[in-house]
């Protein structure tokens, strides 16, 4: 008994150690974003001045707007494209299915830097001027495979008779898709969209290589500022952490929420 307790205690201790290793830096960053002085190590009092500085900084506000716009638009496009592609894939023959799936997995397994350089070279060779549109396109490209991967398992679990039943009751193929198939795979679509959103929101490597003309998202901005340490970055990062945390919470809690709804209906 005593041995067991001791064992549990050790486990607990290790867990705390690991968690603090992960989260202390973030925590300190968040705390010092409210610091009164420039220091990142000594606390001199509470203030919101860095947040004020952040909101007054045109460059930062533009970066935030760019990031959010690109994240929203690329998520929307990638979700629609990815969902349709997944439906197409699930209806094709086995050989085509496997082929398309391995092509789909390639950008996911590929190091990001390779995708980034590839896209950069593509844009340069086609003489496309780098800027907002190239970044948006790149984000759509790298997030679509994740949507496909999260929608496909839902489709696989779908009873093939269900689509036939809809047609049987007079629905055209489009109506069947919209009224029956899509609602049934909605959880997969939503989790795909959330993944696409987070991927786009905090992307640095690819964005850095495919943007230009002064178009910057938050990651690029922070990177260019990181040489001159400035607590506005802390304020910005705190906001980012909060947003990403909320998104992740939604991603992880979504299945439970829907399950609970079903239980409540019972």
């Amino acid at each position: 008994m005593v041995g067991l307790k001791k064992h549990n205690f050790t486990k607990f201790f290790i867990l705390i150690g690991v968690l603090s290793f992960f989260y202390l830096p973030i925590l300190s960053l968040m705390i010092f974003s409210f610091n009164d002085s420039r220091s990142l190590t000594s606390w001199s009092g509470f203030s919101l001045q860095w947040y004020q500085a952040l909101f007054e900084n045109r460059e930062m506000m533009t970066a935030i707007t760019t990031t959010i716009t690109i994240a929203l638009v690329s998520t929307f496009v990638a979700t629609v494209m990815g969902t349709l592609a997944a439906i197409g894939i699930s209806k094709s023959r086995r050989l085509i299915k496997e082929l398309v799936l391995s092509v789909n997995n390639f950008p996911i397994l590929n190091p990001e830097i390779v995708t980034a350089i590839g896209l950069m070279l593509l844009y340069s060779s086609l003489n496309i001027e780098k800027g907002f549109m190239t970044m948006l396109l790149a984000h759509i490209i790298f997030s679509t495979p994740y949507v496909i991967l999260s929608v496909l398992p839902r489709l696989r679990r779908l009873d093939p008779d269900i689509a036939e039943a809809a047609l049987d009751l007079g629905a055209t193929p489009l109506q069947a898709l919209w009224k029956v198939i899509v609602p049934m795979i909605t959880p997969g679509i939503i989790s795909g969209a959330l993944i696409a959103f987070t991927m786009s929101f905090d992307d640095f490597v690819i964005s850095y290589f495919v943007s230009g003309n002064g178009v910057k998202n938050i990651s690029i901005l922070v990177y260019t500022m990181s040489k001159r340490i400035n607590p506005t970055i802390n304020a910005l990062s705190t906001i980012l952490v909060v947003i990403i945390t909320i998104v992740l919470l939604v991603v992880n809690l979504y299945p439970y929420i829907t399950k609970k709804e079903i239980k409540e209906a019972e």
């Binding site: 009873d159 008779d161 036939e164 039943a165 047609l167 049987d168 009751l169 629905a171 193929p173 029956v180």
Partner: peptide
């Protein structure tokens, strides 16, 4: 003639109800 234009309805072997 596509299925949705036939004046036929089916009770499927495994029901195929819309679960949502």
């Amino acid at each position: 003639v596509p299925p949705y234009k036939r004046e036929i309805n089916t009770v499927f072997q495994r029901y195929a109800l819309f679960p949502h």
